[in-house]
Amino acid sequence: MSISKEDVKHVARLARLDFDKEDIEDFTKKFASVVDYVEKLSEVDTEGVEPTYHVHPIKNVMREDKVCKSLDRKESLRNAPDKENGYFKIPRVLD
């Protein structure tokens, strides 16, 4: 198996995710099966092949520097889990 529990913990840390102790075993197994599957890409000879980040060769699409009305603040804050005086708020944490 290509992926260890430690690998999973490291990647989870980067992704700001966490797995319960009882779940991590199962997750690692399934995750590893996917990683093992995509390993088959290494069979492909890509010497001299350019990557395709965008499927169409469109370039230089930009807009002019013009200001438009912003969103009403009430709307901006409407979905905020917590807010105070027009700010988004995060309650006190230890660090």
């Binding site: 520097d65 200001v67 912003s70 969103l71 603040r73 901006s76 700010y87």
Partner: peptide, 29 residues
């Protein structure tokens, strides 16, 4: 297209794009 002006009232130069709302896309100035 929000203003870059300094000193605006808090969260008044914001829109779905610069608040990172789901579904929004950047358009380069």
């Amino acid at each position: 297209k929000c203003s870059t002006e300094f000193g605006g009232d808090v969260n008044t130069h914001t829109c779905p794009i610069c608040l990172g709302m789901p579904g929004t896309l950047p358009v380069l100035n």
